[in-house]
Amino acid sequence: MVTAVHAVMEPLSPSSAAEKPTPRLAAAQPAAAAPAKPGAPAATHLIDIDNLDFFYGASQALHGINLKIEHQKVTAFIGPSGCGKSTLLRCFNRMNDLIEGTRVARGTIKIHGVDIYQPDVDVIELRKRVGMVFQKSNPFPKSIYENITYGLRLQGRNKKSELDEIVERSLRGAALWDEVKDRLDQSGLGLSGGQQQRLCIARAIAVEPEVILMDEPCSALDPVATAKVEELIQELRTRYSIVIVTHNMQQAARVSDRTAFFYLGKLIEYADTRDIFTNPANPQTEAYVSGRFG
């Protein structure tokens, strides 16, 4: 069953959203990690996490994380609930600042070599460059058009022609244009769950971030909608670096180039996705990916 779904998703990855391939178009299974393979030039690290300790009040959520996330790759974080993967993700754009009592006790996170937890960092600027898509789709109760342009207007970009262009580009980028182009002035809340999530992605890419963080973007979606979002992620990987937290190991296997497995706040293993799923180095990883716990 698992492999079947796997196969369904597979061929979507390289193709564009416009020309939807029929699901049953067969493809070779090992292609899963194929896109990651040719690139893999070392030392183009985008995010460099060094020995990170993170606390919620008194309880430690992350223990000494060392991780280098590469440029224009899809990196997946997997692990059982409460393992700290979402926490780490939310460190990258400092969304954790919104939660009371959280703090980075030790270590650094550098993006392009800039330590984002330095006091002179403008969180607002950071978040413009590190976009985020949330677990629960959260379109604003405004029109689709206003949803997309929200971030741009914040930056004072109000020129109608420019906004129109970006809206179209973003919606096309999020593979949503054809579905909503006739009702841009309708509420974003009127869309279906999967469309809402893609709207949120479109909203995120409208401000042209470098990194898009996705926090279990498909956990609230049905399989068809999930397939569309995954397809979109494959699409986006050519232009953005993507970090995705997922509960769904097949999803990680399908969409990501690199996978990090977390357990109890520790990074257990970080490797090419294919290696994690076919040849894990750590027995805990193997136990998890083979479904023995989690």
Partner: peptide
């Protein structure tokens, strides 16, 4: 590091 990645206050 690209030039546009300026996140200092």
């Amino acid at each position: 590091k690209p030039d546009h990645f300026v996140i200092q206050k």
